[in-house]
Design a protein around this nucleic acid. Structure first.
Lengths: 333, 333
DNA sequence: TTGTCAAACCGAAACGTTTCGGTTTTGTTC
DNA sequence: GAACAAAACCGAAACGTTTCGGTTTGACAA
């Protein structure tokens, strides 16, 4: 049905190799160029990237695996990655694995069979066993936001520990001591880092840390709401709280509204991530922000760099700074 | 490097066709099955989907083109689509075209060259010229959320007109007459539908419609904020407002906070789309909701159906009902 | 044991490119 | 216009599958 390079060759009277050369930016005599272009237009020819992929052993497709597409943090990153990749001729196959290790493993296999040229991955778990087979082919793997225990690969991370430490110290400086934290799931890289930041802040401020001030949520809206309620019930004397991702921030705000907990009069509050949401709250939320665009850009750039160079030995790790946007939810006491 | 079907054939002493048959679910003698499976495991064989795609002329890849990945409405739909497609063995290449007609055109070409088996598209403009070449190959194209003027294809839509009409009538029943609307961009299918619903409601209620009560935003947060301010300035006597998408709803709320406009005391308010956001506001927003999951599911199902049947003549159009979630932002007067 | 028939098996050819090694053409210099 | 180098051109082979049409095998009945 669709025209092939052979049809173009026949139509123009030129050889296969010449057409191929033209298509790949090689030099061709002016009159032949004209002929080829005319034939291409007439026959509606378009390179078959599948055939090309088979021959060159390069699909120009990058696999992207994320825990939840339906999550602004991820979506913002992916948007940037996809844009950059495509502007360099790479397609992105996106696999949402619902924060599920098994699905993630399947996604890796799925993409491997399709012979993607590289993998960008925001892992759900913290083991990298499922990446072994892929990495063995010396194709680039780039981790976003989280590190993996048992495999060495490039990564683009954020200074979560420093971010939370800084945020907690702000609360301390505002006179708070009973500062609660809604942390993320155990074993999760970013969650542990953020919790470590919280602990470091206490240490640095010389305040004795109390275990009951930390509760673990599951990074969901419902989880944030539940954790908020539990935390407040367990610590009626708590004066400030830090919530460690966007979904839980939203959940906590919803719950605070429902429980009629006045922020910041009754409770100072620091949330995470979504600037727009923070601005839409009354009063405006103080939040820790992450440079999503930059994460995406750096990941894509790193991938493109890896794709053009020889597979090399050692892994690169980029670590980006977070931001803090002052709202009106921290009250001096 | 990687093992091929030939290696398996050699290792097992069987023929190419037998291995291929096995891989595609054909029957094979028990002892051969065992041999093949052993060889596959030993050589780490995995089907090369690229080669398969070339031979079968089917890539098992679906192209998805959307105006903004970084937009919950889109992201929720895509999540569902991707999930369903992948569970049927189809990969999804996602192209975000930033609500830009030119980028959209390029994306179609890009995907066409890659020989995707079908296209799911939420169009930015309302012409379908750029789809002609693709559709001519009798490959399925499914439109989401918006229709196209000059091309006939399957679509999954939402009853936007009815949704807005219903919402406005709620305000009327609560005693409002000076009801403003922040509509979407001109020429945009959903925007026009929603505006039509607004007009219909006035007609049905027998209220004379006043032009200055409608202002057009651009479906962004900033646009929502600006439009809200402009609308309120132009109509100091307005008692209720309907904002016609999520981003603008958020923008309007931000602006209302900034301007210290009390909702619903000073102004009744109906927003759009994001239920979680609505719940996080004080007081809870009343909103029109769209069945994103179902949109995604229906689109994917329709695609899968089209992929397995013979290309047929007439287009199917699914139209889904919206919802309304009561909050506390409509005040009786 | 032989005959029969379906099930299982087989290899060559094809899908649409790129690439290799070699041939022809072109333009330049004397 | 002969000699030469460089540029342009050429077709066959290969990438890893599936499929076609034909051959072999095995189970069972006679």
């Amino acid at each position: 049905m669709a025209a092939t390079i052979k049809d173009i060759a026949k139509k123009t009277g030129l050889g296969l190799a010449t057409i191929s050369s033209y298509l790949n930016g090689g030099n061709v005599r002016e009159k032949n160029r004209v002929k080829i272009e005319a034939a291409i237009k007439e026959l509606h020819f378009e390179v078959n990237e599948v055939a090309r992929g088979l021959k060159t052993n390069k699909t120009k497709i990058i696999g992207i695996i994320i825990p939840e597409l339906n999550n602004i943090f991820c979506a913002e990153i992916i948007t940037e990655v996809e844009d950059l990749l495509r502007s360099h001729g790479y397609a992105a196959i996106v696999c949402d694995c619902r924060t599920d290790g098994k699905r993630e493993m399947e996604a890796v296999e799925f993409l491997d069979k399709r012979r993607v040229d590289g993998l960008i991955l925001m892992p759900s778990g913290n083991s990298g066993k499922h990446l072994r087979a892929f990495a063995r082919k010396r194709k680039p793997v780039i981790l976003i936001d989280r590190k993996l225990r048992d495999i060495e690969c490039d990564s683009v991370l954020v200074d979560n520990r420093g971010a939370v430490k800084d945020a907690v110290l702000r609360l301390v400086r505002a006179g708070h001591e009973r500062i609660g934290m809604i942390a993320g799931p155990e074993e999760m890289f970013t969650a542990e880092e953020r919790l470590a930041g919280y602990n470091e802040a206490f240490y640095e401020a010389g305040i004795v840390r109390q275990k009951e001030l930390v509760v673990r949520g599951d990074y969901t809206i419902a989880g944030g709401a539940g954790s908020f309620r539990a935390l407040l019930k367990r610590n009626p004397d708590m004066t400030a709280v830090l919530v460690s991702n966007y979904e839980m921030t939203m959940g906590a705000i919803i719950e605070a509204n429902e429980m009629d907990v006045k922020i910041p009069e009754r409770l100072s509050f620091i949330g995470f991530d979504n600037l727009e949401f923070a601005r839409a709250c009354v009063p405006r939320l103080s939040i820790v922000t992450q440079p999503t665009k930059e994460i995406g850009r750096r990941a894509a750039e790193l991938m493109l760099k890896r794709l053009k160079e020889e597979p090399s030995g050692d892994a690169v790790s980029v670590k980006l700074k977070t931001g803090f946007v002052e709202g009106k939810t921290i009250k001096k006491r």
